[in-house]
Amino acid sequence: MYIDEYSDKVKDHFFHPKHNGKLEDADGMGKVGNPKCGDVMELFIKVEDNKISEIKFQTFGCATAIASTDALCELAKGMTLEDAEKISKQDIVDYLGGMPAIKVHCSILGEEALREAIKDYRSKGKT
């Protein structure tokens, strides 16, 4: 992708991610991707009153993947689990002010990781 195709918002989330890191005492964790395709993502959540109270991620992937996951975290924080599960890649693309079609797939892993993390939380029987 060419540098002039990145929106300012994508660049901002890539250069200054707000939600990067790990939650050692996470209530749920999702890990998806494979380095062979150039993306691995880990997403951690803490849940209070059925809402996502804290959310962090780590990504091995391209700039768009990093920015998209950070944007996803921004959107998901404070949401109920049911609402968070409904966040779509289009929501992320819209929030970031659009991106070329070829890069949209880079934002899919974030959603998958979030769903995995919610599943992980529920499987622990804390609901």
Partner: peptide
């Protein structure tokens, strides 16, 4: 590397065992 969940060759080997998604 601070953003990446893969910090060393062990992490990399571990991650490469994960299912190969067809999202590409």
């Amino acid at each position: 590397r601070g953003l990446s969940p893969i910090k060393n060759n062990e992490d990399l080997a571990e991650a490469e065992k994960m299912k190969f998604d067809d999202h590409h």
